[in-house]
Design a protein around this nucleic acid. Sequence first.
DNA 1: ATCAGCATGTAAGGCGTTACATGATTCA
DNA 2: TGAATCATGTAACGCCTTACATGCTGAT
Lengths: 180, 180
Amino acid sequence: MAKDRKIDVVILGLLAHENLTGYDIKKQIDGAISFFWKGSFGSIYPALSDMEKQGLVKRKKADTTGGREKIIYQITKQGKDTLKAWLNDEKAANDLKYETLLKMYFGGTEDRSVTIRNIEIFEKQVKENLKILKLYKDNLEKVLNQEDHIHYYLTVTFGIETYEANLRWCNKAKKILKEK
Amino acid sequence: MAKDRKIDVVILGLLAHENLTGYDIKKQIDGAISFFWKGSFGSIYPALSDMEKQGLVKRKKADTTGGREKIIYQITKQGKDTLKAWLNDEKAANDLKYETLLKMYFGGTEDRSVTIRNIEIFEKQVKENLKILKLYKDNLEKVLNQEDHIHYYLTVTFGIETYEANLRWCNKAKKILKEK
DNA sequence: ATCAGCATGTAAGGCGTTACATGATTCA
DNA sequence: TGAATCATGTAACGCCTTACATGCTGAT
């Protein structure tokens, strides 16, 4: 696995659950995962190639019936070991990059209405995300009997609790800025 | 300003408050800002060079008294306009990249103790960050008379509320994983 | 004397995005 | 017929980090 390329473990994690094509992987990443990790075709396909060379994944079958090639990938024993090692590694980079907070921090040079407007834009984004996450949560609650689903559920509740805290902050911040 | 290089507005934002050297800028970024944005010397110095060519910042004085050169930068009128335009721009990329959540999501293949351990590692990180942010908060509360400080204060409270929500989630998640 | 901190900068290289190229299938 | 979706891949390019190079100052 490439030294710092985390897309590899995302792919491995997904393939540990089921066999997938590169296209499928992209769709999954664009689902619940997108709230805390992103990935584009331009990173997924090259990663799959590399990982195949390294023996972490293999082509299950090139399904060519009826047209465009379709490569279904499967995780190998070595791939499972790599995933296991990563899950057991204490290091975990948790990075927040919030341009809204940057605008908050540097907002003192502008009129307060500008900062309030930026909070409102953020609030709208958060509310939309929250709505989607709550749908995921509702669906997952029905299938908590599977071990995988409990883990998905916990991830989703993390997002919900965080976003709800963000909304509470939005209200407080707007109030402070409108006072005084 | 470079199309997608946000370090430029960070520098501009800091210089709008006071004149600084590249070294000072790095120190400031490593302070309260580091919770939601990062920056290294390898990005700061080249950015300062570019921005000087573009007329966004200028050298106030090359202070060479007593040894090593020391370049103090000052924001220009054009730099202030650029900062203003960015603050008034609706677009704001808010990205979360939490490896801990990735490990949570894909933890279903391992024993639950592994996931619990990962939550505990995360919890420790969050508690440390929270401690630092609370110190910032206490100091800022004494100087809320300045407009800039109100903005710093709001940024810091965002971090505190978010981290506190994270801690509550840690407890719930551990409980769920230890049950059943 | 030596080490930490101050101070600026470059070089190599990795990671990732966007845009492009290609083409089939399905549905309106 | 044309648009959307399925499906794989490459190319260009930008951003950023890490490591390195250099050298002064002040404290122990």
